[in-house]
């Protein structure tokens, strides 16, 4: 099963390696990982998306809690109500015959063109994974040159 795990950690060197080691040591791949400081610059918030056996993930979550540099762990897959978002930059072909279609798709998905050249548009889109994937599949026929994703960030509602 897919898990979105939020980890509040101390903002220190080596912490990322400790956290990722708990996954890699069990042969688990991390699908996406996002880290940035919180309001308190001494702390960082990580959001990790991974897939695996629930029992092993329960063990990983407990092990994460055990790390000295980890303050708090939430496995969102056990929570019902949370928001997740991802930001993606997509470089798509902007040849004359594609431009109108590209802009239409940008419009539909409430995305933005953040850079333009004679050959390409760079599009910024934010949203849930489903929305982002939907947009990517629409843009594919136009020719996607490159794509960069931040990975999911998640937060509980309320």
């Amino acid at each position: 099963m897919r898990h979105t795990i939020s980890v509040l950690v101390e903002n220190k060197f080596g912490v990322l390696a400790r956290v990722s080691g708990l996954f890699s040591g069990r042969g688990f791949n991390i699908e996406s990982l996002n880290v940035a400081p919180t309001l308190d610059p001494a702390l960082s918030q990580m959001t990790i998306v991974t897939r695996g056996d629930d029992r092993i993930l329960e063990q990983i979550t407990k092990q994460l809690n055990k790390l000295i540099n980890v303050i708090k762990v939430i496995d969102y897959s056990t929570e019902t109500d949370y928001i997740n978002r991802e930001l993606v930059l997509i470089k798509v072909s902007a040849k004359a015959e594609h431009r109108a279609e590209a802009l239409r798709i940008v419009d539909i998905f409430r995305a933005k063109v953040v850079d333009a050249s004679h050959s390409h548009y760079t599009i910024e889109v934010t949203g849930s994974e489903g929305k982002v994937n939907g947009m990517i599949s629409m843009l594919k026929p136009l020719g996607i040159k490159g794509i960069v994703r931040t990975g999911l960030v998640a937060m509980s509602r309320g």
Binding site: F13, G14, G21
Partner: peptide, 14 residues
Amino acid sequence: IVGITRPCTKHNYL
């Protein structure tokens, strides 16, 4: 050595 012993120490420091 901090990298090497990360998985076999309770905690380590440089």
